[in-house]
């Protein structure tokens, strides 16, 4: 009986050693994976920063963002809209490069990272389809935001409508240069701001 017990300990110790080595290997693998770049990092878009009034060159064309305006009332081709926040209207000039190209994703991103998409009737944006290469397309976007989202807001533009498809592509991010003073001024304005329809050609001097 004692001989059987002593001989039985060797396979047990062997099993425990193998198990311990497995656990150590798994822990090492976890630690290594923590230092490798995540899948989201490797697929992120390339954000190109710009400012109002300066042309921004991207893979698919050039974007220039004009001086924004705002009010609590928006006069748009689809109707007259009023908001409890502020409507911000941003003029945009897009010149496609190489091939006809739309700008199908337009949004305003505030300083806290909240994203306000344009492209609905209450938040209109119309490119009139794809812009022909070399011909400037003039368009405007209008987005309603809470008043506290205006200061530090940026406009974000990309060719594809789904932001998951912005992976590894150029995305324009232009600081609108807005302040809390602009927000307060527009929050008390009910004269309204008008959204102009899109057209091709140079923007007339203001």
């Amino acid at each position: 009986m004692r001989h059987r017990r002593r001989a039985g300990w060797r396979p047990i110790m062997g099993t425990v050693s193998v198990g311990a080595l497995l656990v150590v290997a798994l822990a090492l693998g976890q630690a290594v994976e923590r230092f490798l770049p995540s899948r989201d990092d490797t697929l992120r878009p390339f954000e190109r920063a710009g400012v109002v009034g300066e042309p921004l060159s991207l893979r698919y064309g050039t974007i220039e963002v004009g001086q924004p305006d705002g009010s609590t009332v928006l006069h748009a081709p689809g109707g007259v809209y009023s908001t409890t926040g502020v409507y911000v209207v941003v003029p945009i000039t897009f010149t496609a490069k190489g091939e006809p190209q739309p700008l199908a994703y337009v949004a305003i991103r505030d300083a806290e990272g909240r994203v306000y998409r344009a492209g609905s009737r209450r938040n209109p944006w119309s490119m009139l389809g794809a812009a022909q290469p070399g011909i400037p397309r003039q368009a405007q976007i209008a987005v309603e935001l809470p008043v506290d989202a205006v200061a530090g807001a940026q406009v974000v533009l990309a060719p594809r409508p789904n932001d998951m498809d912005h992976r590894r592509d150029d995305v324009a991010v232009v600081d609108l240069g807005l302040t809390a003073t602009d927000a307060q001024e527009w929050a008390t304005d009910d004269d309204g701001v008008t959204l102009e329809p899109a057209y091709d050609g140079e923007r007339p001097p203001s």
Binding site: V80, Y81, S82, R114, Y116, R121, R122, N123, A149
Partner: peptide, 12 residues
């Protein structure tokens, strides 16, 4: 304003 609500924005 009597408009159709086709999109809601955060914070409003």
């Amino acid at each position: 304003d009597g408009s159709h609500l086709d999109a809601l924005q955060p914070g409003l």
